[in-house]
């Protein structure tokens, strides 16, 4: 990751097969891990959404709904307040990343084309690294305020 690696307090790394039933498992695992941070239930819900979008992308787009392909998640807590999340697949990759990041752009009519918009909106930083034929890695970071310093509404 191109970002500064701070003081890693804890991390979890896991991989699973590219089937739809694992999307819920992935978001619950990350949510459980993220709950170590001093964040609100609303923030946990946002993290769950982000994971759900990224993992659904791996299954639907990277692997064209093929099962038994590998999805990897690495999640870490840095300096007690920052969550780093990497979601990686070895699928077909994204040819035009800029276009994929446009709101409401989708190659699949049954979803809404908002996956990356949610990821960008609910995380502080997001970077997509992709190589056609090799796979995609989505790296995201979000810092949470220490609760008693929270000054905004």
């Amino acid at each position: 990751m191109g970002w500064t690696i701070m003081n890693i307090k804890n991390y979890v790394r896991f991989e699973f097969s590219s089937i739809a039933e694992n999307v819920g498992l992935a978001r619950s695992c990350v949510a459980a891990f993220a709950s170590q941070l001093d964040c609100t239930l609303d923030e946990i819900e946002e993290i769950k959404l982000v994971v759900s979008e990224a993992v659904s992308n791996c299954i639907i787009h990277a692997y064209d709904n093929r099962a038994n392909q590998k999805v990897e998640i690495m999640v870490s807590i840095q300096d007690d307040r920052t969550l780093d999340l990497i979601i990686k697949d070895y699928g077909k990759g994204i040819v035009d990343i800029e276009k994929a990041l446009e709101p409401a752009y989708s190659t699949d009519g049954s979803r809404m084309g908002m996956g990356f918009t949610f990821m960008k909106s609910f995380m502080d930083e997001m970077e997509v690294i992709s190589k056609p034929g090799e796979g995609t890695s989505v790296q995201m970071r979000r810092s949470f305020l220490v609760r008693d310093q929270e000054a905004y509404a």
Binding site: L49, S52, S56, G109, S110, M112, M114, G115, F118
Partner: peptide, 13 residues
């Protein structure tokens, strides 16, 4: 208890 893009796509469809 939870909705994502797939759920939103269901509604739009």
């Amino acid at each position: 208890t939870f909705i994502d893009s797939s759920g939103l796509g269901l509604i739009i469809g």
